[in-house]
């Protein structure tokens, strides 16, 4: 058991690992796994920060209802908990600053 990681994996899948990039860091994650779960298992704690106050957020409901695990994939905001891991996936943090003026 790797004690540095917050989750214990009951049945580690080492056979089908693929590379996924999250926020610039490469991770080897099981193909077909739930992306939010796989990132949590890999030790990612903060998935995004909120547009309102830049507060850190991570998966909360894991069932597609709370929208706290939002990430950016191919330029579109997606729910990590509703996405499956696939080879070469490039995941970015959802843009942190909403509000036109902060960006303008």
């Amino acid at each position: 058991m790797n004690n540095a990681l917050p989750f214990h994996d009951l049945s580690p899948d080492t056979a089908s690992l693929v590379n996924v990039r999250f926020d610039g860091t490469e991770y080897a994650l099981p193909e077909g796994a739930n992306l939010a779960a796989a990132l949590l298992a890999a030790g990612v704690t903060v998935f995004r920060t909120t547009p309102t106050s830049q507060a850190p957020r991570a998966p909360y409901c894991m069932m597609g209802a709370c929208y706290d695990c939002l990430v950016k994939i191919d330029g579109t905001t997606r729910q990590a908990c509703m996405t499956e891991v696939r080879k070469g996936l490039i995941v970015e943090r959802a843009h942190t600053a909403g509000g036109v003026d902060e960006n303008g």
Partner: peptide, 21 residues
């Protein structure tokens, strides 16, 4: 981050075999 519903923990366990330590 780190706060989840108990249901989320169930889902992590059922679908992904993950248990928070």
């Amino acid at each position: 981050p780190g706060v989840m519903t108990a249901g989320a923990a169930q889902i992590l366990l059922k679908q992904s075999g993950l248990v928070p330590k």
